[in-house]
Design a protein around this nucleic acid. Structure first.
Lengths: 229, 229
DNA sequence: GGCACGACGAGAGCGCTGCTCTCGGTTCGT
DNA sequence: ACGAACCGAGAGCAGCGCTCTCGTCGTGCC
């Protein structure tokens, strides 16, 4: 006797299958996901899908949540697989993991980091999973700062910026100097830009050797942050 | 007697008005531009629009081209308005101009730099205007290198990356060391990431003082590139 | 100066979309 | 056992991009 009723279990499986089919459509057809097409693929009529997702946006939100978690898993796993004292190795591993995941799931990456859909507002559930990759990067720097191998940069932060960043460190990595957080955020911004440029075809002709270019660019940011070689 | 016939002139005005109305719709309704809605706003029936643009994508392409040029104009003008020897001032001015234009035209920025539309392939006309902002940044660094105030970084570039970048400098700023170009591209990537994060709402809660944050971050990249203070 | 041609706008229509509502049939909790 | 909740099918609505046809009107040519 299952703890959940048959109906509840079938419903859960149904939701999973809908998401799986939708993800497949996303991968092939791009961002304009069609509920009717998903329903057709499942041998259902489109109105039946609304028993499981009240609207197309809710389906997209579910996919977005799972995508954030998949990306977060990949980045954190890559970081954890490296010797914790090898800060630069961890940095490169985390960056590469993000890039690899994005290249393997371009449509989902575009869903997460592309232009926001006009009417769509990201629900609050997404903000925590969305912070996992940058949080991982902060953690690498924080470990280096904690044992003294990363020294504080002598940036003169404008006071309002220092205050904003202080609130972030308080909830994320207490004690981390704001100037270091500012630098790691520069690295995170750069990482996002690198992946987006590559994925959205902006260096198609210009830079054929994209992997080496990526590693070099992330290395530049590691220098800026002050990760020891 | 006008050189062009009345019909040709009316047609040109019509095209301009369609683009203007479409741009207005883009600003209010976001990226999903509706041909029918544009036609309604002009008191026309939708099929009449096809006399001027063979498809919705062609209208979008026209808007994209104009947007690239507007952004390029803004960045180049901001750069030119600063004393050419004030490299850091030029850098900040160019970066701020890009941000200001993006904040003033968020939908058009999203059109240029957001996730690519699935079926849409950017025509070759767009690649040159698209290169104007990064070219401006390269020019700032190049001027500094030419008169010796920016010294070459001793990065060890992997050979394939060096070769790729050498091809770019050859057509853009002959004689510029590849390692410097790599750093400018890091700055350009970062600039794009900064604007995108801000525009797509990624630092809504985290960083309220966005302008000061922006200036500090672009300053970090100026440091990385080696622009003198 | 007439005239055939081309451009033009309106309208109908096709297939697609997201979404709503109604109607039978099944399953669940009590 | 029975009412309630759930589920899938079907019809339908408004909107979309796009095509085709049909009168109308300006244009360049003879």
């Amino acid at each position: 006797m299952p703890a959940a009723s048959i109906r509840a279990r079938v419903r859960a499986e149904m939701i999973d299958e809908i998401k799986a089919v939708a993800r497949r459509h996303l991968a092939t057809d791009g961002a304009n996901l069609s509920l009717r097409a998903v329903a057709r693929d499942m041998g259902m009529v489109s109105s039946a899908l609304y028993r499981y997702f009240p609207s197309r946006d809710d389906l997209l939100t579910a996919l977005i949540l799972e995508a954030y978690d998949a990306l977060g898993d990949a980045v954190e796993a890559a970081d954890a697989a490296v010797d914790p004292r090898d800060l630069r190795g961890r940095w490169h591993a985390a960056c590469r993991a993000a890039r690899d995941w994005a290249l393997a799931h371009p449509a989902e990456y575009a869903l997460l980091y592309g232009s926001p859909v006009p009417g769509y507002a990201a629900p609050d559930d997404t903000v925590l999973p969305a912070q996992r990759p940058p949080t991982t990067l902060v953690g690498i720097l924080g470990d280096g700062y904690a044992d003294g191998r990363v020294t504080v940069a002598d940036d003169d932060l404008p006071e309002p910026v220092r205050a904003d960043l202080a609130e972030i460190t308080a909830g994320l990595f207490p004690g981390l100097p704001e100037s270091l957080l500012a630098r790691v955020m520069a690295g995170w911004t750069q990482l996002f830009g690198l992946i987006s440029f590559e994925l959205f075809g902006r260096l198609n002709r210009a830079v054929p050797h994209r992997e080496a270019y990526f590693d070099h660019q992330t290395g530049l940011m590691a220098d800026l942050i002050g990760l020891p070689r």
